[in-house]
Structures are given as structure tokens and as C-alpha cells.
């Protein structure tokens, strides 16, 4: 994702030119960005917590998260095992930390795949002047909507055997349409602006227009979509590993932790709480981050709130 970040161009605020290209003058271009809203900050903090957990798990976990310890089975939270242990005596806190890694890994690859395929397709469909080609891309897109991530992942799992890879690819493919649609609608707006007309008259090639004018202008919207899609990917990954179609054991994943702990709902319900909470924090974080970013990037929302 990061390699798509446009070069530092302080005069190209993505928040305004799409809808109101005339206000990007020298006077307004240099104005400070809107302050970060509470949504953005809360989202960033929650996402930061998940990322920190994932990073910490690379260098330190209190216990080996996959080490079975029969003597320490099913403990409530205590001084040694902060969040308790599961039915195999594995430390839940350690598993939550490593689970964050699994979640982010799946999310990054899935959303990365979807944006790398969906964005060029959408820009192409928006710029192409051959109607049938656009129609074909968009119809294929609509068809893909009938294959949601979970269904694709179960199909992949049935054919290739379930793994982290099949889950990531399935979630990624199912996410392509949202990027393609957004990129296309953004592109259509940019293509109707005068600076694109000027560039075309000056004889710039379509690919150059796409790279210099379209991509930087739809980039903000794509970032917002990326954050929202990430939340959806986290949900999908959790559901898939709950069903046994995600990351294979013993690698910890939050969804499978829930599935394994469900047997203990009558005896030790507290150990169900931690993975549930972890999933909710991650999804809430990326959703809020997306909302906060939308407030900054989407010019139509200026008068909101």
C-alpha cells in the first residue's frame, strides 16, 4: 500500500479539487489541513494498539503461545497468566498478541490485493471511451459482488484446502469491486475537470493523465476505502478462522480462539471475552479511522456535524 503514496506535493490537497477545482488557488492551497477529529484520533489509537500488539509479539510474548501445558489448563486470569489459559493450558495473552499479527497480515495482503487490482480497473473503466469495455469491467465487478468473501473462501477451502493464503486471496478478490467502483466514480469526476481537458489538449497520453491527475485526486477516497475494507477483512478473517477456513492451527488466530473457547461457555466464559474484545477493537479502530479520514478527504462532508 505504502508504495502508492504520492510524492510530497503540498499544493495538492486531495480534499477539495474533485468537487470544486476552482478554489485551489495559491491562497487556499497552503492553508492548514482541518484539525484531526475525535473519530480519527480514537480510530488511530485503537489501530495503534492492535499494531503495537502485533509488533510486540515478534520480540516478546509472556509465554510461548503454542506451548501446551496440561498443568495450567483453563485458569482464570491471574498474576502468571494475565488473561488466563485455554483448554490446552496455552497462555491467552500471548495468543492474543500473536493473533493480532495474523489479523493484520491477512488484512494487509487482502486489502493490498484488492486495491492493486481494483484501482487500475476502476480508473481504466472511468477513462476508457469505449463503452463496451467499461461495461464489461463493471459487469464483471457486479458479478463478483454475488461471491462474498466468506463464500469464496469456503469454495477455495473446499478445492485447495483451507489456509491463511486461501483466506487472504478470497477476501482480497471479494474486496476488488468496492475499490473498482470507487476509483471509477472518482475518475469520472476528475475527467470532467478543466485541468484534465487542458492536459488532453496538450497531448498528454492517457496513462500519464491517469498517473499525474486521476490517481492523486482519487487517492484520498481510496485511503478511506482501504481503512473500511480493512475492518471488513478483519471481520471476515475472524469468521473464517472461527469456521476452520482460515489460518491453520497451531498458529493463533482470534476467530479460532473463540471457537475453541466456546466449549467453556458454561465453565470459564471469561476466556471468550478476550478474543471477542480483540476483534471488536480492531474492527472499531479501522472503521473509526475510515470515518475520520473521510471527514478530512471528502469535500462533500464539509458542512456535516
Amino acid at each position: 500500500m505504502t508504495d502508492l503514496v504520492p510524492p510530497a506535493e503540498p499544493t495538492a490537497p486531495t480534499e477539495s479539487p474533485v468537487a470544486q477545482p476552482e478554489i485551489v488557488t495559491e491562497a487556499t492551497a497552503g492553508r492548514p489541513r482541518r484539525p484531526m477529529g475525535p473519530l480519527f484520533i480514537t480510530g488511530a489509537v485503537l489501530v495503534g494498539v492492535v499494531m503495537a500488539a502485533a509488533l510486540i509479539s515478534f520480540v516478546w510474548t509472556p509465554y510461548n503461545p503454542i506451548k501446551v501445558d496440561a498443568a495450567a489448563r483453563l485458569q482464570s486470569p491471574n498474576a502468571e497468566h494475565w488473561l488466563g489459559t485455554d483448554k490446552f493450558g496455552r497462555d491467552i495473552f500471548s495468543q492474543i498478541l500473536v493473533g493480532a499479527r495474523t489479523t493484520l497480515y491477512v488484512g494487509v495482503i487482502a486489502v493490498g490485493l484488492a486495491s492493486i487490482i481494483g484501482t487500475p480497473l476502476g480508473i481504466f473503466a472511468g477513462m476508457s471511451n469505449r463503452g463496451w469495455l467499461t461495461e464489461l469491467v463493471m459487469r464483471a465487478n457486479d458479478l463478483l459482488l454475488a461471491f462474498p468473501a466468506l463464500l469464496l473462501a469456503i469454495m477455495f477451502g473446499a478445492v485447495f484446502g483451507a489456509s491463511t493464503l486461501t483466506a487472504m486471496i478470497a477476501i482480497g478478490i471479494a474486496t476488488i469491486p468496492s475499490f473498482a467502483r470507487l476509483a471509477r466514480s472518482g475518475t469520472l469526476q476528475v475527467m470532467s475537470t478543466e485541468y484534465v481537458l487542458a492536459a488532453r489538449i496538450a497531448g498528454r497520453k492517457p496513462i500519464a493523465i491517469a498517473w499525474r491527475h486521476v490517481l492523486p485526486n482519487v487517492f484520498g477516497l481510496l485511503i478511506v476505502q482501504g481503512s473500511v475494507s480493512f475492518a471488513i477483512a478483519v471481520l471476515a478473517e475472524a469468521a473464517l478462522s472461527y469456521l476452520g477456513f482460515g489460518t491453520a492451527p497451531p498458529t493463533p488466530s482470534w476467530g479460532r480462539m473463540l471457537q475453541e473457547a466456546q466449549e467453556q461457555i458454561f465453565t470459564l466464559p471469561i476466556i471468550l471475552l478476550w478474543p471477542a474484545l480483540a476483534i471488536a477493537v480492531a474492527v472499531l479502530g479501522f472503521n473509526l479511522l475510515g470515518d475520520g479520514l473521510r471527514d478530512r478527504f471528502d469535500p462533500r462532508l464539509e458542512d456535516r456535524r
Binding site: L235, A238, L258, I279, A280, V281, V283
Partner: peptide, 12 residues
Amino acid sequence: IGIAIPAFVMGI
């Protein structure tokens, strides 16, 4: 908050 809770977690 409701959006952040997957249906299966809500179910549990």
C-alpha cells in the same frame, strides 16, 4: 459499537 461486533460474536 454494534458494527464492530461480528454476528457470531454477538451470538456467543
